[in-house]
């Protein structure tokens, strides 16, 4: 799936989002029904913008939209669980005033949205300064994180 996008699916599929830097990947699934979805948000808050051209860019819009798509697939909100990854700080400038904390703010916004929706956050791999790829295996509900030069790990 792409950047600033989300996908939902039902069945023995894998959903993959590649190259999460300061962006955050959100996997929400229900192991009971082999259904779930993944979102790749790039910004925390749409309310700072006058014009929103793509709702899937923003944590505050993408996650509720994906959750309602999942509900259309017949998944009950109370059976949903989430895992998140990303929110890194990729660049370390010697001049610290140039370093932004967009990654941290993205992760924080995602946690807040999940809390509001009443979806438990089971695990997260956020922060640091490395890029991540997130893989959601709908058959098992397993979420794997892949980083450069490392074995994929189970989240």
């Amino acid at each position: 799936m792409g950047i600033a996008d989300y996908k939902v699916a039902s069945g023995p599929f894998r959903i993959i989002t590649v190259g999460l830097g300061s962006c955050v990947g959100i996997s929400i699934y229900d192991t009971g029904s082999m259904s779930g979805g993944m979102a790749h948000i790039i910004l925390p808050d749409s309310t700072k913008f006058h014009k929103v051209d793509n709702e899937a860019k923003f944590a505050d819009l993408a996650i509720p939209k994906m959750v309602s798509e999942l509900e259309k697939l017949g998944i009950k909100r109370r059976n949903m669980a989430a895992k998140i990854a990303g929110g890194a700080s990729m660049f370390q400038f010697a001049d610290s005033s140039l370093n932004t904390d967009i990654g941290r703010r993205n992760a924080e916004a995602v946690r807040t949205v999940l809390r509001k929706l009443g979806i438990p956050l089971l695990a997260e791999d956020t922060g640091g300064n490395t890029g991540r790829t997130m893989i959601l295996d709908l058959e098992t509900g397993n979420v794997f994180i892949r980083m450069v030069g490392k074995e994929p790990k189970l989240l």
Binding site: G19, L20, G21, S22, F91, A94, D95, G131
Partner: peptide
């Protein structure tokens, strides 16, 4: 210009972050 910052990682993670920042 600023002093440069170096990073070695996945292209996608670097590019999206530079873009958003």
């Amino acid at each position: 210009s600023s002093v440069p910052a170096f990073v070695q990682d996945m292209f996608g993670a670097i590019m999206t972050t530079a873009y958003i920042e």
